[in-house]
Amino acid sequence: MQIFVKTLTGKTITSEVEPSDTIENVKAKIQDKEGIPPDQQRLIFAGKQLEDGRTLSDYNIQKESTLHLVLR
């Protein structure tokens, strides 16, 4: 499924993921596309910071959901 990751600069990254993918996994995909190390990434969805060990389905993230990427 496709999800969108919006950066603070307003850029939107499209990523191909599975509901069973972990947040860590998603951060790795963002690193592949943007070159941002996962340890600098914080992903936010519905006002919550997403934890690395959890999966997209844990957070009820569905296709075409938009996550927000904040850098630390």
Rank of each mutant, 00 (worst) to 15 (best):
H68S: 07
L8G: 10
K29S: 07
Q41S: 06
N60I: 03
F4G: 02
E51Q: 10
I36G: 03
T14M: 12
D32L: 13
T66S: 05
Q2D: 05
L67I: 13
G53V: 07
K63W: 09
I23E: 01
L8S: 14
Q41F: 15
P38V: 15
Y59M: 03
T14H: 07
E51G: 04
Q62R: 11
M1R: 04
I61E: 01
N60A: 08
M1G: 04
L67D: 01
S57P: 02
I30F: 03
P37F: 05
I30R: 00
E64F: 14
G10R: 04
P37W: 06
K48R: 11
I23S: 02
K33H: 10
P38D: 04
K33L: 14
G53S: 11
T22H: 04
I23W: 02
G47M: 04
R72C: 11
H68I: 15
S57Y: 10
I30P: 01
S20G: 11
Q2P: 08
F45A: 02
V17G: 02
K48E: 12
E64K: 08
A46N: 15
L69S: 02
D32E: 14
F4P: 01
G53K: 12
G10N: 05
I61N: 01
V70K: 07
Q41T: 09
T7F: 15
V26F: 05
P38E: 08
R42M: 15
Q62Y: 09
R54F: 12
T12S: 06
G53E: 10
K29Q: 10
L43E: 01
G10C: 07
T66K: 05
F45L: 05
T7A: 05
T55I: 06
V70A: 07
K33A: 13
D21K: 01
R42F: 13
T55E: 03
T14I: 14
L43F: 04
D39N: 11
K27V: 04
S65Y: 08
Q40G: 06
N60Q: 08
K33I: 14
V5A: 02
K27F: 06
Q49E: 15
A28I: 13
K27T: 03
G10M: 03
Q49A: 12
H68W: 15
I44M: 12
I13E: 02
K29G: 06
G53F: 11
K11Y: 12
Q49T: 14
F45I: 03
K11G: 07
E64Q: 09
I36P: 05
T22I: 04
H68A: 06
T66N: 04
K29Y: 10
Q49P: 11
R72Y: 12
D21Q: 05
V70W: 09
A28E: 09
A46Y: 08
D39I: 10
L71W: 08
T7W: 13
I23F: 02
G53T: 10
I36D: 03
D21W: 13
L56F: 04
K63E: 12
E64I: 02
Q40S: 09
N60V: 04
K33D: 06
A28Y: 12
F45S: 03
T55V: 06
T14Y: 09
E16S: 11
L50T: 02
I44R: 05
V17M: 05
L8P: 15
S20A: 08
Q62E: 10
E24P: 02
N60H: 09
L56Q: 00
P38H: 12
R42A: 10
I30T: 01
Q2T: 15
N25F: 11
I61P: 01
